[in-house]
Design a protein around this nucleic acid. Structure first.
Lengths: 223, 223
DNA sequence: GTCTATACACGGATAGAC
DNA sequence: GTCTATCCGTGTATAGAC
């Protein structure tokens, strides 16, 4: 698969001449829900209300169209979460909590693009992963790390664990929930599978008591 | 996609007449690494050293072959983990720890089958998920739940959280690591991405301090 | 920019000999 | 059980008119 380097200078590299945007939207929906191979150009044309040949006029090939879809999906998903992090005040733990909740919500709301990106993450062997890490996730992950390390220096979080590990555990729960909640629903005792917010609250509660510094209610001091 | 109900009575429903096993093995490798659509019957035949028509002699259709592959992959993956749980003594936390470590190890070692099953979990919308939950994951998940509840009644684990939630968090870390470690490697501060065992140890350490009841080193007792 | 028509290859599946 | 040969649908991509 070709490289997906994106020139970060131009805001709109291809203005997407009206009809092309319809094609892009249709392609995104179809690719995300059924994968690359399972969807045909005929189908995309039909869904977009355009002719198959017109697609090839706007995009060099099927793969080129796919990569274009990927790029737009990535930047959308990321952009939503950027603000939540920095421009806030108050305890960092609360901010983390809100971030995680927002992240899961975003996953579930933009299910299509989320799946699309996940697919790429998983099947990207070799050095494609590096590009993904640097050009797609790098910024947001770094931001999350900064928040966590701030929490550590401020004493809100344990300082004896790698911040990246905390970040990963924070995200892992969300992504697992996103992936598996349909199956989870039918497993014994996993009623929370239908309640993302509740899951988030409880998972965070568990994680926090491992993340925070020893929070011991002093038995001698019970005023 | 057709139902994947498996008669649980017969141990070897179809003895897989020698050549059929080669086909099955080749199909598993190809399906797992590239997905259902991307692999052709021609390719499977070639890899297995058989003719395309011969595949259709042993399996009704491409989809039937796929389901057969799925079934075998599932039972293999599950079977490995079954023993680890019950037939042991000692603190439950330790057993959980060993289970989680073994689980991640199993994922990484059987990458192909693991991916295959994950694919099914994610794209199974509707009631296909129910079958997966009941016929593939049900047993193992129930076992894990039993272990956790035992830990709760024994006082090793906090009793005020849903056991299923603990189970999910235990698994989520592993699966996220399995999915993302290639990308993770290239993110800042995530050096543990190349060290599954280390990741397991640290993640478990974090989780435990949230899971176990308040573990407070008594400051008055320092003999 | 958008269409109709078409070339060309490949994929899944079957027939029938051995 | 295994093969060769073949049918038929569909998918990507192009040519060329409007």
């Amino acid at each position: 698969m070709p490289t997906l380097r994106h020139t970060p200078t131009a805001d709109t590299p291809a203005p997407a001449s009206e009809g092309a945007r319809a094609i892009l939207a249709a392609a995104e929906a179809l690719f995300a829900s059924r994968g690359y191979d399972a969807v045909s150009m005929n189908e995309i044309a039909q869904t977009a209300g355009a002719s198959k040949a017109n697609i090839f006029h706007h995009f060099q090939s099927k793969k080129a169209l796919y990569l274009e879809v990927l790029r737009s999906a990535c930047s959308n998903d990321s952009a939503e979460l950027l603000q939540e992090l920095e421009h806030e005040s108050g305890p960092i733990i609360e901010r983390l909590q809100r971030f995680v909740a927002h992240h899961l919500d975003s996953l579930l709301r933009n299910e299509r693009s989320a799946r699309l990106i996940q697919r790429e993450v998983r099947q990207s062997s070799d050095d494609q992963a590096k590009e993904l890490a640097q050009q797609v996730f790098g910024d947001n992950f770094a931001r999350l790390l900064a928040l966590i390390t701030a929490g550590q220096t401020q004493g809100e979080l344990r300082a004896d664990v790698e911040p990246a590990l905390i970040a990963v555990l924070l995200l892992a729960g969300n992504i697992f929930f996103f992936d598996a909640h349909r199956v989870l629903r039918h497993l014994p005792g996993a009623g929370f599978a239908t309640d993302p917010a509740g899951f988030n609250r409880m998972a965070m509660e568990i994680l926090l008591h491992g993340i925070r510094p020893q929070h011991c209610p002093n038995p001698t001091d019970q005023s």
